[in-house]
C-alpha cells in the first residue's frame, strides 16, 4: 500500500492508498459531519453533508466516498463548504415534521446535532411537509417515517449486517419512502427483533417499542418509618 500525501486545510498530511478524504481527515483529527455514512456500511454518497472543496474540481466532492489521490489539496471548512452544508440541512429540515421538542430522539438526534453545529436557524424554505402514519404493528420496532431523511442506513444495515433484506426504497422524488415488501407496515413475520436498523437510524424515525409503565416494574418501594 503506497503512501499518499495530501494537503488538508493548509497542512501536509499523509494517508494510504484507498483511503477516503473523510478517513484521512478523521485520522488527523479533522471533523467532517456525516449523515448517510457509517464506517460499517458501504458508502453511497446520498446526503452530501460531508462535501469538501478540492482544488481543481469543478464541484464540491463527497468526502465519505471519494478516495484521496497524490497531491490533492482539500478544504474541509471553507466558507463555500459551510454554506453548502447549511443549505443541505435546511433542505432536509424543510420537509421534516419539525417537532424536536416532542421527539424522543431529540438530544441524540444526529440531524438535530448537525443543524445546531451549523447554526441553522428558523426555516427559510416553505414546502409541503411529508407526513406518514406511525407504524406500530411490529412488537419490536416502531417506524415514524415522517422523521425519515432517506439516508438509507437502515436499508444497508439490514442488507449488509443482518443480511435480512427487509427494507427497500420505493416511489420517486418527494414521494420516496423506505418500504417493506409492497409498502406494508413492518410486522413480526418479516423482521426478527435484531435491533440493527434501529441503532443505525440517525433520526427518530426508528425506535424500539416502549411499554407503558415499564420503569415501574420490579419490587415496590416501601418506605417504613
Amino acid at each position: 500500500m503506497g503512501e499518499i500525501t495530501v494537503t488538508i486545510n493548509g497542512s501536509q498530511l499523509s494517508g494510504s492508498e484507498g483511503m477516503t478524504i473523510l478517513e484521512a481527515a478523521q485520522e488527523n483529527g479533522i471533523d467532517i459531519p456525516t449523515l448517510c455514512h457509517r464506517p460499517e456500511l458501504t458508502p453511497i454518497g446520498a446526503c452530501r453533508i460531508c462535501v469538501v472543496e478540492v482544488e481543481g474540481s469543478r464541484t464540491l466532492v463527497g468526502s465519505c466516498h471519494t478516495p484521496i489521490t497524490q497531491g490533492m489539496v482539500i478544504y474541509t471548512h471553507s466558507p463555500k463548504v459551510l454554506e453548502t452544508r447549511k443549505v443541505i440541512v435546511e433542505l432536509l429540515l424543510a420537509s421534516h415534521c419539525g417537532s424536536c421538542f416532542m421527539c424522543d430522539k431529540a438530544n441524540v438526534c444526529e440531524l438535530r446535532r448537525i443543524a445546531a453545529d451549523l447554526e441553522v436557524g428558523l426555516p427559510r424554505f416553505r414546502v409541503r411537509k411529508r407526513y406518514y402514519p406511525i407504524e406500530d404493528v411490529s412488537p419490536y420496532i416502531v417506524r415514524d417515517l415522517t422523521k425519515c431523511i432517506l439516508c438509507r442506513r437502515c436499508v444497508r444495515a439490514c442488507n449488509e449486517i443482518k443480511k435480512a433484506r427487509v427494507f427497500g426504497i420505493a416511489y420517486r422524488g418527494f414521494d420516496s419512502k423506505v418500504v417493506v415488501d409492497f409498502d406494508q407496515p413492518i410486522d413480526k413475520d418479516v423482521c426478527q427483533d435484531c435491533d440493527v436498523c434501529i441503532s443505525f437510524c440517525p433520526t427518530g424515525a426508528l425506535s424500539r417499542v416502549k411499554k407503558l409503565g415499564e420503569e415501574k416494574k420490579g419490587k415496590a418501594l416501601v418506605i417504613s418509618s
Partner: peptide, 13 residues
C-alpha cells in the same frame, strides 16, 4: 434472488 421491496422499488420508480 432479490427482496420484494427492491422489485417494488423499481416498479414504482
Amino acid at each position: 434472488d432479490m427482496s420484494i421491496s427492491d422489485v417494488y422499488g423499481v416498479a414504482t420508480f
